[in-house]
Write a protein that binds this DNA or RNA. Structure first.
Lengths: 248, 248
DNA sequence: TAGAAAATCTAACACATGTTTGTGAATGCA
DNA sequence: TGCATTCACAAACATGTGTTAGATTTTCTA
């Protein structure tokens, strides 16, 4: 279960056995969380860092009048709130969307480990910065792409990210979001999500059913989305340069 | 000139004289840059970290077909590409919008300083995380706010951020963006920017002229924008708790 | 397994925003 | 000082997306 996290951290570069062990020890015993439950809420000062081991979660913010925007989709292996260890409190909330398994680590322990193991610190920072790169791409998505392009782009991204942690089966992967949640992610209304999904289906590019996303024509989807996986920093590749020849 | 940076770093908590001195020494002699010139381009692996000392700059990305989205506005005191030191290359470009003064530091020197001076490392990380919080709020802005609300929100944010580095005069501050650039920031067309600015003016909330932004009714503007400065983490306050009583 | 609740899907209509095109004013450059 | 360029502003029209409301289907749960 902890594998998904290690796999992600090692995308960056390999950790020593001492490091992975220290990390594994710091991780509290996994906890099961029901769908649609807050893991951390805006304003919290958790003092613990939460790690998503299984299932899906969203970062989100709600405006005074109830409008909700999803800021990011968290997939297994993602850290939920590393930044809160430095900033002290959460400026947004995080909620599960599916049944999930999470583990936590004490923030001060993470800090200690980071000072002791510089490449662990580096790996954690790397995770945070990839998240930022993804958020920036979402800004492009919301600002400059049409609803259709946005949706296509989102599907490309999710498939790539899940593939990176070994959670895709060929052209399929899980994506347990309702059309309402998709709308809150893509900045469009639920009704328009429905229209858009129909168009993607009609063109034979994508079907989504029962929380399962299937991409039928990856090339065309990427083209329609103006998708360039550059910003994922080879998250989709097995192991970047630092890994030596004997790749597994 | 270096003051703007220090002032920002010290929002977080005070640096020792040794630290500020080490930082000052690492900063190469300032360089003047013309408006609308790239400071770093997408794909670059700069090896140096750039610091904006004076003037304005934008992070931006361009889609294959030419559509451009501004991902962030950089104001004096902001780091342009701290993350590139870890990620290795830029996933977006940074360009000046006004005449600007910048300085650079070698990435490896920054890394060295960070390991030697932990509270400097902390301060730099803090800057990065604030940037992320701002980017997340931009996602909300683009995804859930109307053109009018977005524009109002953007003006609130810029004024708060400039006030934080001592670059506002009462209800006014510089904002040298053309209506086209505002559109690329707010995810709307140039024509619609014009319409929106007129509405803000008609309501007596804001005027923008000759690169100068003036807010006539701050309360109403914040209300219309659904602006909550929370996400700026008290960037707008002089000095947070860690600073002792004798505040300047 | 029935009933309730949630999610998908449709349709009609409203409207915010985009597009195109053009004018006049401001700005920069030779 | 004049010319070219950029910028702000305007009007008419096109359209993508939002809204409201309701019918169907699926999923949950008692």
């Amino acid at each position: 279960m902890i594998k998904s996290v290690l796999r992600k951290l090692e995308h960056h570069h390999l950790l020593s056995t001492a490091e992975t062990q220290a990390l594994a020890e710091a991780i509290a015993r996994p906890r099961y969380v029901k769908p649609h439950e807050d893991l951390v809420s805006r304003g919290d000062s958790p003092g613990r860092v939460t790690l998503l081991l299984d299932g899906f979660a969203t970062r989100y913010k709600t405006l005074e009048d109830g409008r909700r925007q999803i800021l990011g989709l968290l997939v297994p292996g993602d850290f939920c709130d590393l930044h809160s260890a430095v900033l002290g409190r959460m400026d947004h909330s995080i909620a599960t969307v599916s049944p999930a398994t999470v583990a936590t680590m004490r923030a001060d322990v993470v800090e200690q480990l980071s000072t002791r193991h510089s490449s662990l610190a580096h790996a954690l920072l790397w995770c945070t910065l990839i998240d930022d790169a993804i958020t920036r791409e979402w800004v492009v998505n919301l600002g400059r792409r049409t609803a259709y392009e946005r949706t296509a782009h989102f599907f490309c991204e999710i498939h790539a990210r899940l593939a990176a942690v070994g959670l895709s089966r060929g052209s399929s992967c899980r994506l347990p979001l309702t059309q309402t949640e998709l709308g809150e992610t893509l900045g469009i209304s639920t009704v328009h999500v429905n229209r858009t999904l129909q168009e993607l289906r009609r063109k034979g590019l994508v079907t989504i059913r029962g929380g399962e996303l299937t991409i039928h024509d990856h090339d065309q989807l990427m083209a329609d989305a103006l998708f360039d996986p550059d910003y994922l920093y080879a998250l989709g590749q097995k192991h970047p340069p630092t890994r030596n020849a004997a790749n597994g």
